[in-house]
Design a protein around this nucleic acid. Structure first.
Lengths: 350, 350
DNA sequence: CACAGTCTGGACAACGTTGTCACCAGCGTC
DNA sequence: GACGCTGGTGACAACGTTGTCCAGACTGTG
């Protein structure tokens, strides 16, 4: 019987889910129809207690588990959402991610997530892979500055919410912290404590939050009638080596700064290390709060935003869209909060 | 024509992916057969350049994106793996999660993850939801101590690797740090610096790592011929309030401890806060390294394990299984490393 | 006893994709 | 000039589920 042997092996893919039982198998074993099994599995009405018992017995005997891929194909909703951000392990984004997960869970959805590593190509690749999986919605912390590639997806009904940074060249829901006001407040705080020469070290201005924070810095300086020397600005650094070099440059010479403003939590931590090695005190205010900031000496004054709150707001907005709310795209801005702990209240040292 | 109207609306689910184009639509527009579109989309050979161009044009005109749910249903592999751990946002697990993601990415797979919040029921719910999605494999940091519910899944071919803690009542691949040796080394280090009364504060002993660390503590004490008073042990605390209360209890009275060993990073951080308020120095060694440990005063001596390395090892083992390696379950143990920074080298204060 | 109404259950098509197979044209061979 | 070959193409079934619809077995009623 080469016939059957060949056709059987030829038709069957390598190893389909290791030969899992299907509803058909369950139905055969229980002596009922396919649809009856479906009804039991989904808790639908119209099955007699006796039949239900037989089906349940058959299900557990065979170790059946419904294949959600087939279900999704049939129903058209995946009950899953995608989250793309820069780095899952970053202490700023981890709570954001967790908050999105909690909201998803509350809506019975699973979370698929990926890190873009600040690489636009990788962001796009991830987002489109998620779209191919037909996630119901997307939460995106952009790494790219052009999201036109998402237009067909959004048109096709993928709900999309951006967090932390705005999308490029498309209009979509957006949840932001108020970077401009936060940075302005932080720098004004330093000025209020007597500083006149203040350095700014932050991400490259291509990143929206970095741009806004630099703008806030300039606004505070200009409101106080203070000049800004070009040497006091280091927009672009984020790796410890470069931050260190920039800081050391700003801290020497006749025009040296007496205070520093750090554009994000990574920069702040590096600056804490650099300043700890100095013999004179230099004031520091950092954007983003971080664990143990209060236990350092001096404790670090920060502009705090709440990443979990941003994530929650974004996810809730997403699910509101999925429930059919069809307003024009919204932009929500969350305020920041200055937490004075000591490092930002040091007086100028010269 | 009520006929067509009724049947159309009755048969069509609410809103199928917002009416996305399918291969059939692409084929119709390009004037080719369905299978030819499939070939182009998958880069299969046997399509003339001219036809391919027509199909590509049709794809981008319609904004077509392959529906991976259907593809998965047909092919039987999802190219996705699941990760279930306690808390995505925990600074210990975040890098682990990120490492798993990187390995998955290198193998062309997506990562679906969820937090169990240390709740066995939630772990099971999550894991089974992932199985229903037919993830190819699972990486699990157990919250539960009984994983027999996974037996049918594993039998059906879901590759499964446990990390950080062993599974309960089943045999499966496992990647661990050496909690016992780590804790023993840490406590021996304190003893070597003259301490005789040392407190242990850690997770509830139901958690494997906590149990092992407590065992390591006892081993070090017993090797040094030192007695252990019951009041020096606080296995079960992990929330700041309780850790604080336990520590304060241990730090008073005639039998008071001169050093503390912390069972995990959460506990260590809380103890740093408690000890900072004391007027006399108390030595501290903590399990798990954490950011800024070197900048506190005193800097914190820790037993470091590398969560990213654990995650990477687990994910790589998983993909080796998926590639068909069929050895008996392996148990890999990673060594820990003592990093002396100051807090563990303080002499006894009485 | 005929009849409508309720309850249970199953047959069947469809979701969008991929594997198999068959077909057709164009070609070179004996 | 019948032959097989090859390369391009499409028809068709199947993946496992759910929605629709119909059929039979009961009930209670006139």
């Amino acid at each position: 019987m080469p016939e059957t042997a060949r056709s059987a092996s030829a038709r069957t893919p390598e190893r389909r889910y290791g030969n899992r039982p299907t509803m058909k198998d369950v139905a055969a074993r229980a002596g009922v129809g396919l649809k009856t099994v479906s009804r039991v599995v989904n808790g639908e009405a119209g099955v007699s207690p006796d039949t239900e018992r037989r089906v349940q017995e058959s299900i557990s005997a065979l170790g059946f588990r419904r294949n959600d891929s087939a279900r999704i194909l049939r129903k058209g909703r995946t009950a899953s959402i995608g989250l793309v951000l820069e780095d899952l392990a970053d202490p700023f984004y981890a709570p954001l991610s967790r908050a999105v997960e909690e909201v998803a869970r509350a809506h019975g959805a699973l979370l698929i997530n990926g890190s873009s590593a600040e690489d636009p190509g990788r962001e796009q690749e991830l987002v489109l892979a998620l779209c191919a999986r037909r996630v119901d919605g997307l939460v995106i912390v952009p790494a790219s500055d052009d999201h036109r590639y998402l237009e067909p997806e959004i048109a096709a009904g993928v709900a999309t919410v951006f967090v932390d940074r705005p999308p490029g060249h498309i209009d979509a829901d957006l949840v932001l912290a108020d970077s401009f006001a936060g940075a302005r407040d932080g720098v004004s705080h330093l000025i209020a404590h007597g500083h006149r020469r203040i350095g700014f070290i932050g991400d490259r201005p291509g990143i929206h939050t970095a741009h806004e924070r630099l703008r806030g810095y300039r606004a505070a300086m200009s409101e106080a009638g203070l000049p800004v020397a070009e040497g006091w600005l280091a927009p672009g650094a984020t790796d410890p080596g470069r931050v260190r070099a920039d800081a050391e440059r700003m801290l020497e010479g006749p025009e040296r700064v007496t205070a520093l403003f750090a554009g994000n939590n990574r920069v702040t931590v590096t600056l804490v290390r650099v300043l700890a090695e100095l013999d004179r005190p230099v004031a520091l205010v950092g954007f983003d709060d971080f664990e143990l900031a209060d236990l350092l000496s001096p404790a670090v004054t920060v502009i705090a935003q709440d990443p979990a709150q941003l994530g929650r707001a974004a996810a809730e907005l997403l699910f509101r869209r999925l429930e059919g709310v069809d307003d024009p795209p919204r932009r929500m801005t969350h305020p920041t909060r200055l937490i004075a702990r000591g490092s930002g209240e040091l007086p100028p040292s010269d």
